[in-house]
């Protein structure tokens, strides 16, 4: 089933991307090609094969539960476009 421009718009909206009509059309075609290519994998019989979670063989490293120094607040906020009262300042949130 080919990807439609509506689906592209839906996904773009979830990712907070604004696309033009022309882009939606173009990306629909491109995404479709990618998904069709991936479909090829379904031709293989993978019954009895453990799903692979990660491309690297290995296990997650852990660390002891020790408190380390945090950033000074000025540094933490240094990249914020807007700040006040020691906080990141964002457009008013409505729930």
């Amino acid at each position: 089933m080919p990807i439609t421009p509506d689906e592209v718009e839906y996904v773009a909206n979830l990712a907070r991307l604004e696309l033009t009509e022309e882009e939606k059309e173009r990306f629909a075609g491109q995404l479709d090609a990618i998904l069709q290519y991936m479909e090829k994998l379904n031709e293989l019989d993978t019954s009895g094969v453990e799903p692979l979670v990660h491309g690297i063989a290995g296990r997650q490293a852990t660390r002891p539960d020790r408190v380390e120094e945090s950033l000074p607040r000025d540094e933490a906020l240094a990249n914020a476009p807007e700040k006040s009262e020691g906080c990141f300042r964002v457009p008013r949130i409505i729930e």
């Binding site: 933490a76 807007e82 006040s84 020691g86 906080c87 300042r89 964002v90 457009p91 008013r92």
Partner: peptide, 13 residues
Amino acid sequence: VDYPGADYSLVDL
């Protein structure tokens, strides 16, 4: 923020 007319919120991480 409940200052009258405030059009922003603050974030503490």
